[in-house]
Write a protein that binds this DNA or RNA. Structure first.
Length: 476
RNA sequence: GGCGGCAUAGCCAAGUGGUAAGGCAGCGGUCUGCAAAACCGCUAUUCACCAGUUCAAAUCUGGUUGCCGCCUCCA
């Protein structure tokens, strides 16, 4: 089955064909680094992380470019509020971004360019736009003239006339059209500036992406991605700038992911419900966050709630419980020695091929895990041939989804530490109680044993008596 | 005002013409001292509502209702 991608430009799924066979060139709009990453940033990063991982496992060479917007009004304003330098501020949040996203097991992009390191390219593009009369100068400012570009509105499905009518855009008398957007802003006192043919100033927001994508991926590349909110005006403007210069399509496939809501409300500063990645990571394992983010289709909105994370947590625990049943070395030493069709992996790929349907892909993982559990039950935990055949498929799925990378012991140990620190409990105390109960059980003092179990249950601890003794964990 | 999206079991969530994936919760069973975990079985005659097209519709068309997003910085 060929890979099909929903293309925002045409509003339908299209068969993916890279410009150059075997190579995928993809550009994703990265964060403006003026604040900590929230769960919405995580969705963007994880979504494209899985897409890129999938391309790689399918044998593509992936050139993945994700930028940092490190010069912008928001950064300058924030820096002023904090009486710091914009450069220092953006540096700080770039580091935070890496901390958060590394923690989430997101692989780094191939190239991670910053706007401020591409001023030269930006200026050169603006010069061309001015030469070709797509842009005009007003004092030290350069604006892009939306009317000069025929295709303006083709991505967002808007018409210039419609937008002007109800526009809430501030009327700036100097612009030819209210929707004209700035390519270059003249310097204001105290702001970072660069020399340009139009005097000291700094780039507008949209132009950096055109400059950097062009530099690293060429005039036309395969995939351009970002959040749905970027469709207009950001991506619309990128198309205008880039295509005005090249006369060729900026990109062949536009991928836009949906938002994360918090308890059915939009995340916003005014509602004070911005959920930071680093805060969620204090409570949940990274896999849990990834599972949550990938359990719905990337284009749908998803709703963050405590309940959703608890549920995701239960599923991740279930997966690790399976891995725990298999000697760790055995997990990696298995290799399929026969040529039968890889049922689960094929089903997983079919799902991924259908516009990266991670929900169905995860369902396939569940099915595979259930079967291995069943086979282990049947064989009394002996690794049989059938199991050796399914395990590598599970590992391949795991590698695409980017979860289950910890050794199970580590996962369960972390889970305990995470919860005990939250609940003011002490692992030694808990284990002492469990020891007491085990002694009682050996003495067949069931009442005492059940009493202790009851007590632990009240501490939200659940016990499992197995052949090799009792293991415990917190309820999700 | 303009553009777009969504509505599937108690909850989350796939499914875009061929008779409802998966997860959570629930019920019954195997296992267990009893549990838990794991596994097995059951759990939507039906996909917001009303018409229409079709041999066949959750899926297509028209309409109604309800939610949501974008049009201003936003992942």
């Amino acid at each position: 089955m060929p890979l099909r991608i929903y293309n925002t430009l045409n509003k339908k799924k299209e068969v993916f064909e890279p410009l150059e066979p075997g190579v995928v060139r993809i550009y994703v709009c990265g964060p403006t680094v003026y604040d900590s990453c929230h769960i919405g940033h995580a969705r963007s990063v994880v979504t494209f992380d899985v897409i890129v991982r999938y391309f790689k496992t399918k044998g593509f060479d992936v050139i993945y470019v994700r930028n940092f917007t490190d010069i912008d009004d928001k950064i300058i304003n924030r820096a002023q509020e904090l009486s710091t330098d914009p450069k220092i501020l953006s540096e700080k949040y770039i580091n935070e971004f890496y901390e958060d996203m590394d923690a989430l097991n997101a692989q780094r992009a191939t190239i991670e360019p910053r706007a401020t390191e591409h001023i030269e390219q930006i200026i050169s593009i603006i010069e061309t736009l001015v030469e070709k009369k797509f842009a005009y100068q007003v004092n030290g400012d350069i604006y892009f003239s939306v009317e000069s570009f025929d295709g303006y509105g083709k991505l967002s499905g808007r018409k210039l006339e419609d937008m002007e009518a109800g526009a809430r855009v501030e009327i700036d008398e100097r612009k030819k059209n209210p929707l004209d957007f700035s390519l270059w802003k003249s310097a204001k006192p105290g702001e970072p500036t660069w020399a340009s043919p139009w005097g000291m100033g700094r780039p507008g927001w949209h132009i950096e992406c055109s400059a950097m994508s062009m530099k690293y991926l060429g005039m036309t590349f395969d995939i351009h991605g970002g959040g749905k909110d970027l469709i207009f005006p950001h991506h619309e403007n990128e198309i205008a700038q880039s295509e005005a210069i090249s006369g060729n399509p900026l990109t062949r496939y536009w991928i836009h992911h949906g938002f994360v809501n918090i308890n059915q409300e939009k995340m916003s500063k005014s509602l004070k419900n911005i959920l930071l990645v680093k805060d969620v990571l204090k409570k949940y394992h990274p896999d849990v966050i990834r599972y949550f983010l990938l359990s719905s289709h990337y284009r749908s909105p998803i709703d963050y709630s405590e309940n959703a994370l608890v549920e995701a947590s239960g599923n991740i625990t279930k997966f690790y419980k399976l891995l725990e049943r298999i000697p760790y070395k055995k997990i990696f030493s298995t290799n399929k020695a026969n040529n039968s069709p890889e049922f689960y992996w094929d089903r997983f790929c079919d799902a991924m091929d259908d516009d990266f349907n991670t929900a169905v892909a995860l369902a396939t993982l569940h099915d595979a895990v259930r079967e291995v559990n069943r086979l282990l039950d049947e064989s009394n935990n002996i690794i049989t041939h059938s199991i050796e055949f399914i395990l590598p498929q599970i590992l391949k799925m795991r590698d695409v989804i980017g979860i289950l990378l910890d050794p199970p012991e580590k996962y369960f140990r972390n889970a305990k530490t995470l919860k005990t620190s939250h609940k003011n409990l002490n692992i030694e105390e808990i284990e002492l109680l469990i020891k007491e109960r085990s002694d009682a059980r050996k003495a067949k003092d069931w009442d005492k044993a059940d009493n202790i179990r009851q007590k632990l249950d009240e501490m939200n601890i659940v016990l499992e008596d197995g052949q090799d003794g009792t293991v415990w964990q917190f309820k999700a």
